[in-house]
Computed example of a mutant assay.
Amino acid sequence: MSTRGILNAAAGRGKFSLSRYEPSPPLQPFVEHYWIVRYDLNAETPFTQTVLSYPNVHLAFEHDHEGRRAFLYGIPRRPFVRELSGAGRVFGVRFRAGGFYPFWQRNVSLLTGTTVAASELFGRDADEWTSVILDAGDDAEMARQAELALSTRLPRRDPQAELAGRIVQETMNDRSIMKVEQLSELTGLSIRQMQRLFRKYVGVTPKWVIKRFRLQEAAEHLEQDESAQWAELATQFGYFDQAHFIKDFKSVLGQTPAAYKSRISAE
């Protein structure tokens, strides 16, 4: 199971469990996967996990010492930080890039950087779903109950939303893509058309997506390769020079690659 985007994932493995389940065929155009995080830190100090998020909207059903709740999480503009304390669990639905729009039917960028109650979209059903999913027992049954719930709201597929999703997937897979102009050439869309498409269906700009995927890879590489050299990493991830790479890394993660490497080595 990939942990890309979960910063210092090795430290997190000792603090929480993570499992994932695939959606059924009818929901696959909209949902990438379901995920479940469980943790029990009652005998330990709180643990802070930082995630360099993908360009995906999430629907999360949460249960901890503060109670139960269901939220829609738009794409965070900055790294997502969550402190885990006590015992708890979260069941999440990760929508595909573009896959949330058919449910939402509004500009997805309106959610970017925000968290709203799930009831804003799903009404009273959100409260019922929270109980049914969190009371389901094991992880597989939670995923099954989520499938049943979302199937009652199954929207029509949207060709433009799926086009946006394919472009995001191509950007993730092809690390040579470093500029919006390259996506424009690949898709035949103008830069302005691309920006409008992403704003409406994904929630962030093409430039944001490109930078995020490259920096996710870089952070993962720094964690796994003790001999990583900045100049080599910069070239590997499509940067023309080391200074540009360091500047982008610091602008998103708040520290230089060297400082990040030192911190995770010490933990």
Rank of each mutant, 00 (worst) to 15 (best):
Y260D: 03
I167L: 12
S184Y: 12
E22S: 02
R175V: 05
P257N: 02
N173I: 05
R96F: 10
V132S: 13
K207A: 04
I133V: 15
K247C: 00
A43L: 08
H58M: 10
L163K: 14
E223Q: 12
R78H: 14
A231W: 01
A164M: 10
G188D: 12
E181S: 12
D138L: 13
V116A: 03
R77W: 07
M1F: 07
G88Y: 12
M172A: 05
Y54S: 14
V168R: 15
V180S: 00
Y101M: 01
W230E: 03
T152N: 03
T187H: 09
D64C: 03
V202H: 05
E223F: 08
Q224M: 02
A9G: 01
Y101V: 04
E223K: 05
E217Y: 11
R156A: 09
L183Q: 08
I133Y: 15
I191P: 10
F61Q: 04
R69G: 06
V90P: 02
E223T: 08
W104Q: 00
Y54C: 08
T187N: 07
K15G: 07
A243R: 02
A70M: 11
V57C: 09
D225S: 07
T152Q: 08
G113A: 06
G74P: 14
G92D: 04
A118T: 01
R199I: 08
N56E: 08
D127T: 15
P55N: 07
E120Q: 04
Q242S: 05
E181M: 09
V116N: 02
E66V: 07
A143K: 13
R166F: 03
R20N: 07
Y239Q: 05
Q182D: 11
S109R: 10
S151R: 13
H33Q: 13
K261A: 10
T112L: 00
W104C: 02
Q195Y: 13
L163I: 03
L72T: 09
A146R: 13
R20G: 03
T256A: 05
I177G: 00
E22N: 01
G188A: 10
T112S: 11
L148R: 15
F249M: 00
A97M: 04
A117C: 01
R82P: 07
A149D: 12
R69P: 05
W35Y: 15
W35C: 12
G137N: 02
F100L: 02
R212E: 03
G98L: 04
S17F: 11
V31C: 01
A143D: 07
I246N: 01
R214K: 09
R82M: 10
